[in-house]
Simulated scan of single mutants.
Amino acid sequence: MKGERKLKKFLSSLDKDEGIILLCHHNADPDSLGSAIAFSNLLLNLGFKNVRIGVAQSIASYSRRLLSFSKVPVEKNPEITESVIFILDTSSLEQLEPIQIPNNSSIIVIDHHVEKDNPIPAEISIVDPSRTSTAEIVWELLKKFKFVDEDSAKVLLAGIVSDTSNFRFANSKTFKTVYEIMNLYSFSIGEIMQLVAPVTDENTEQAKRMAILKACQRMEIHKVKKFVIVTSKVSAYEALACKVFLQLGADVAIVGSEKGGVRISARARDYLVRKGLHLGRLMERVGPIIKGSGGGHAGAAGANGRENLDKAIKFLVKEVEKFLKGVE
């Protein structure tokens, strides 16, 4: 894997008292947080004493069960004093706001997203877009360092399950990693799925229901040949609204929010992904429109920014329509 030898050499050159922080993108999902926890376990095993994890803004509710596996502090919006920074599952610095990266830091990026035109300036980049999750890359790195343990395996498998949407977007490399993990340890996939199951209570469930009903009330339908694009706006749960729209019959769903900034989620049916639709690449182009950043997978993507939600949704609809006109 490109960059792994350089990483080994870099880590071996560091003093064991060197401060190291591992950063996760905003609303850290199980892939980002699980990868950080597993890699922090590797660093502890190598003898590093001052290790912590930082998350931008928040941790996704369905990631929070993974916190019990962390042996190092996990802090929200940390002030960085460390000189060594690992950035995991994150393709742009905007996804780390409001965290400030000090100048002259040694930055190491570990990610599975396609590199953008202006990638994070890193001393070492270990990026493999052929992987369906960053957790798979971290698993490969742990093997190279001859370190694996059950807790790390669990959180990495949780990241894989989550980022592949319960293996919907998995490929042969995904299943090879899953086989290796399951062959080493006796836990079940059901146990791992429970780790990343939605965290709900009565208030949360009511808020979700209201968000979905409002999304349906505000939805706009765009028809292209036999295909249906649905757009809407809510104040929260944009990704959930997209999922519901697909269940109701949409081929592509785009849902935005302007609460506390601009957020956009989009989802597409698998057969359109197989035809070549890539929402993640479209969201990268949305980033500058909303004065933020975007990206993601072919069938599930998102963007975060500061303004121009309507303009961004119009752009996405236009680009998806253009794609659909060429699909038989």
Rank of each mutant, 00 (worst) to 15 (best):
R5F: 09
F10I: 05
S12A: 14
L14D: 06
I20P: 00
H25C: 07
I37Y: 00
S40P: 03
L46I: 08
K49T: 12
V51Q: 09
S61C: 10
S61P: 01
R64N: 09
R65N: 13
F69N: 00
P73I: 13
P73F: 15
V74E: 01
E75G: 03
E79C: 11
I80F: 05
E82R: 05
E82T: 13
F86M: 07
L88W: 01
S91I: 10
E94V: 09
E97Q: 12
I101G: 03
S105P: 05
H113C: 08
V114N: 05
P121C: 15
V127T: 14
S130D: 12
T132A: 10
T134D: 03
A135S: 13
S152H: 06
S162W: 12
A170T: 08
F175M: 11
I181M: 10
Y185V: 09
V199D: 15
E202I: 12
A215D: 04
I229K: 02
L248D: 04
A250W: 04
V252G: 06
G260D: 12
G260F: 06
G261V: 03
V262D: 01
A266H: 02
E284R: 04
R285W: 05
I290C: 03
G296P: 00
G296W: 04
G299I: 05
A303N: 00
G305Y: 01
E307N: 09
D310Y: 06
V317P: 03
K325S: 10
